[in-house]
Design a protein around this nucleic acid. Structure first.
Length: 419
RNA sequence: GUGGCCUUAGCUCAAUCGGCAGAGCAUCGGAUUGUGGAUCCGACGGUUACGGGUUCGAUUCCCGUAGGCCACCCCA
C-alpha cells in the first residue's frame, strides 16, 4: 500500500475500463480535425522556461505559480532549471512555426495536437497536474470567419461526444490599438477604489489591469461599473467582433457575451472564448477555451502573423460525459476460443484464422474443464465462444443468449459474429 | 499557495467506553465425471496511509507528514 510507490500527486492512471471512453473522445477529435482540414503536429513536452514566460506573460498564473520545472542532468549544479513542462501548447507550436520557417508554407496553416499538459497547482476533481488537451491552431488568417469556424468546431466537438448544455462564452479584448486605451480606462476606474480591491488585484492593476476583472472577490458594484471592453473597441475590432457574432448566428451556435472574460494568458488579442457546461456545481465547469493571438508570432521573434486557437480539456470533457451519462462503454464483439485437454495447437491455429478475418480473439490458454473456460470467457466480456471438439468438430456459442450452433466451419464464424 | 473534511482487505463500508480487526462485492477453488451466468461451501486477502506521542493496551485520543475530496485562487 502506501509503503509502495504511488502515482505522483495530481496524476492518475487510466485503467482499461476507463480508456475506451478516452479512445472514443480522441477519435472524435481526430476525425473532426480531419474534416476541418487540420494537420497533426507534435512538439516536445518541455520547452525553455523563457518561451512560456515571454509567450504566456510573466503575470499569467501559468507562469507565475504553476510552472512545472524540470532540471537537466543530475548534479548539473544549475541554479534554475532551464526547462518547464508545457502548460499549454500554443507557445510551443508558435516556436516550431518560427523555427521551421513555416510562414513560407501555403497558408493559413491549420495545426492540431492531442497530448498531456502540466501545471503545478493544487489538484482537485477535474483538475490535475497532468491533464490532456485537444488543441487546434490556425496561423496566418486574420479574418473573423476563422474565429467563427473554430468556435463552431468546438461546439460541434461537444455535440459529437454527446454532451448537451455546453455553451460558448465570448468576448473581445481589443488589439494593440484599442487595448491600451481600455487598459487605461480600467486603471482609472479601479485606481479610484483601490482600497476595496484584493491584494492580488492591486498588484494586477499595475502589471495587467485586464485580469482584475478575473478576480472573483471584486465587489459587485465595482464590477458592474467597470468599463467594458466592448465599449472601447476600435472600429476594426468592433467590426471583427460583430462579424463573428453574425456568423455564429448563421451557423446556429449558441453563445453568450461575457464582458468579464479576459482569459488567463497574456497573448490573447481580440477574440476570447471559453466553453462551459451547465449543471456542474463545482468550479471546474470550463471545458475548454481559446482565443486570437495576433501578436504572439512577432513577440516570439517571427515575422508578424495572426493566429487563433483553442484547447479543449479531455479530462473534463469525459468527466462531464460521465455526469451526463453519455460516456460510451463500447465492448467489441470478442470471440473466445475454447478447447478440450491440451489442444492448444488447434486453439491457436483457429484463433489465428479468425484474427486474419478481422475478429478480436481471446484463446483460453488453460486446460481446465470446459465449464471453467466458458465462465472466464464470459467474465472477460466475450460475446462468442468457439468450442473445439474432437477432430474437426466446432461449435459457436452465443454467450449473451446461450444459443449454440453446432458443426460450424471456420469460414462460417466471421460472418455470423460480424452480424 | 491558504482553509475545511477525510484515509480500515483490490472495491464499498463496519468495529460498542480505548480491550483478540469484520462483512458484502470482486478474485481463486469445490459442489458440477468436459457447456458459463443462479445457489451453496471454502480459500485468499491487513504494519487500520506513513511516522511519532499518551496508555498495561490505540483502528479509536494527541502531534507531524503524505495523499484524496471540497472551498478559495485560477484554469483545462
Amino acid at each position: 500500500m502506501s509503503r509502495n510507490i504511488a502515482a505522483p500527486r495530481g496524476t492518475r492512471d487510466l485503467l482499461p475500463e476507463e480508456t475506451s471512453a478516452w479512445s472514443h473522445v480522441e477519435s472524435v477529435a481526430r476525425d473532426l480535425a480531419r474534416r476541418y482540414a487540420f494537420d497533426r503536429i507534435e512538439i516536445p513536452l518541455f520547452e525553455r522556461v523563457e518561451l512560456f514566460a515571454r509567450g504566456l506573460g510573466e503575470s499569467s498564473d501559468a507562469v507565475e505559480k504553476e510552472m512545472f520545472r524540470v532540471s537537466g542532468a543530475q548534479g548539473s549544479g544549475e541554479e534554475a532549471a532551464p526547462w518547464a513542462l508545457r502548460p499549454e501548447p500554443t507557445a510551443g507550436i508558435v516556436r516550431a512555426f518560427i523555427e521551421h520557417g513555416m510562414h513560407v508554407r501555403p497558408g493559413p496553416l491549420r495545426l492540431t495536437l492531442i497530448g498531456p499538459m502540466f501545471r503545478y497547482d493544487r489538484p482537485q476533481a477535474g483538475r490535475y497536474r497532468q491533464f490532456s488537451q485537444w488543441d487546434v491552431e490556425v496561423i496566418g488568417d486574420a479574418g473573423p470567419a476563422v474565429d467563427a469556424e473554430l468556435i463552431e468546431l468546438g461546439h460541434r466537438f461537444y455535440a459529437e461526444v454527446g454532451l448537451t448544455d455546453v455553451v460558448a462564452r465570448i468576448n473581445s479584448i481589443g488589439d494593440a490599438e484599442c487595448r491600451p486605451r481600455y487598459r487605461q480606462a480600467l486603471v482609472d476606474h479601479f485606481a479610484a477604489h483601490e482600497d476595496r480591491l484584493s491584494l492580488d488585484s492591486r498588484r494586477r492593476l499595475r502589471i495587467n489591469p485586464l485580469r482584475v476583472l478575473d478576480d472573483k472577490d471584486l465587489p459587485p458594484e465595482l464590477a458592474a461599473d467597470a468599463p467594458r471592453g466592448m465599449d472601447h473597441l476600435c472600429d476594426a475590432c468592433r467590426e471583427h467582433f460583430d462579424a463573428i457574432r453574425a456568423l455564429l448566428d448563421v451557423l446556429g451556435v449558441r453563445y453568450e457575451l461575457d464582458h468579464r472574460l479576459v482569459r488567463g494568458l497574456d497573448y490573447y488579442t481580440r477574440t476570447a472564448f471559453e466553453f462551459y457546461v451547465a449543471g456542474r456545481e463545482g468550479q471546474q465547469q470550463a471545458l475548454g477555451g481559446g482565443g486570437r493571438y495576433d501578436g504572439l508570432v512577432e513577440l516570439l521573434g517571427g515575422r508578424p502573423a495572426p493566429g487563433i486557437g483553442f484547447g479543449i480539456g479531455l479530462d473534463r470533457t469525459i468527466l462531464a460525459m460521465e455526469e451526463q451519462g453519455v460516456a460510451p462503454a463500447p465492448r467489441g464483439e470478442l470471440v473466445a476460443v475454447l478447447g478440450m485437454g491440451d489442444d492448444h495447437d488447434r486453439r491457436l491455429q483457429i484463433a489465428g484464422t479468425l484474427r486474419q478475418a478481422g475478429l478480436a480473439v481471446r484463446p483460453d490458454g488453460s486446460s481446465r474443464k470446459l465449464g471453467k473456460q466458458l465462465e472466464s470467457a464470459s467474465k472477460a466480456g466475450a460475446r462468442w465462444a468457439v468450442i473445439i471438439g474432437d477432430g474437426d468438430a466446432m461449435a459457436l456459442k452465443d454467450l449473451a443468449t446461450g444459443g449454440q450452433r453446432d458443426a460450424v466451419s471456420i469460414e462460417e464464424i466471421a460472418p455470423i459474429v460480424s452480424g
